[in-house]
Design a protein around this nucleic acid. Structure first.
Lengths: 192, 192
DNA sequence: CCTAACTCGTACTTCACTGTACGACTTCTT
DNA sequence: AAGAAGTCGTACAGTGAAGTACGAGTTAGG
């Protein structure tokens, strides 16, 4: 059994396995928050025991998957050009991240089943803060509304993205249209 | 065992039990879509076996709960004053139904786990049609936007309501504010 | 090339939930 | 008041997933 939590060095193949498992976990849990450990191991092309070698239990696995998703989210966010009016920044931001956020909502709901709410909020803090700052900036510019709690403005964006993902999955929204519609919808919500 | 599906008359106490069970099912499933049969029976103050006496399996129970929720939804909808501009009608409609719809989203997701998608859509058809008609009317009046599929416009309202319910549950949105915020948010989305 | 690290199958225990079987008891209803 | 209808506990079988134990085989890396 690999040294899981200790700071020891890991062998390259172990590293590879972990990467595949985490990726598979993101995949499976995004489709079905109740996906079993077995499903995930299979999807990763790895024995269930290998998985348990790296993650003591479902909790740890879900946490790793969520952390990974948030990590790539952070990457994307930090690549977005922040110059110009908040409205435009928001459009660019949504354009490059809506699908990612959308796909992760199911993963998030999986996390809600096994991780304490405080942990989840904490993991989200970084990204949430960025969006919140953007909204605040838009408000200062007079472009975004101020008649609702900022927390609601930030969170409702998530719910819209979640919805877009659902509609996509159900074939009720064409993938090529989704970006445009998401952006237009969110802009309408935030506009002053 | 009572005659479940046959058209036979039921005794008054059975009728009462069923009502309590359905109500408890709505309650429990709205809080947790994975609530067990046992939880629901306990919440109804009824033995598990009594429950099985009236509902052959989880599927039937969930279906009954959903049907019941949709039924009260229909009642509320049919009480809404439909006169005047679509914008105003929408406000009245949301004001009297947002909490109901919001609470039922979890129940709906429970249903998605056990009922065929077609059945669910069909059960929803009546209410969905009303909302769709209202949106269409608003479009004809020039009050509502026409640059997105109408299906999206209708469904995104659900997602916003779902979000409002979540925020409420998490204490991030004050109950007394929620109505106002929901209405304002939805109006912004639909406005031309 | 040797050894520790890793993989991973099989088999097991535990656990929660579903649904069934039986039967004794209670309460409507006529 | 009698019988049908309904209540409901206990007990059982089946299922599916979580997590543990063991151990034999494989691979990376000094």
């Amino acid at each position: 059994m690999p040294p899981a939590s200790t700071g020891r060095r890991r062998r390259a193949d172990a590293e590879r396995s972990i990467a595949r498992i985490v990726s598979a976990a993101r995949d499976c849990l995004s489709r079905d928050p109740n996906a079993s450990i077995d499903d995930i191991a299979k999807a990763a092309g790895v024995g269930r025991m290998t998985l348990y070698g790296h993650f003591r239990n479902r909790r740890e696995l879900v946490e790793a998957a969520l952390a990974d998703a948030l990590g790539t989210g952070e990457e994307v966010l930090s690549d977005v050009d922040l110059s110009g009016p908040a409205r435009d920044v928001l459009s660019r931001l949504l354009d490059s991240s809506w699908s990612l956020v959308a796909e992760s909502t199911a993963l998030l709901s999986a996390a809600e089943g096994v991780l304490p709410a405080a942990t989840i909020r904490e993991m989200h803090a970084a990204s949430a803060l960025r969006v919140e700052e953007l909204v605040r900036r838009g408000q200062d510019e007079g472009a975004f509304r101020t008649d609702m709690p900022i927390e609601w403005l930030v969170n409702v964006v998530h719910y819209v993205l979640h919805g877009a993902a659902e509609e996509n999955r159900g074939g009720r929204l064409k993938p090529e249209e989704t970006g445009r519609i998401v952006i237009a919808t969110v802009q309408s919500i935030l506009a002053a």
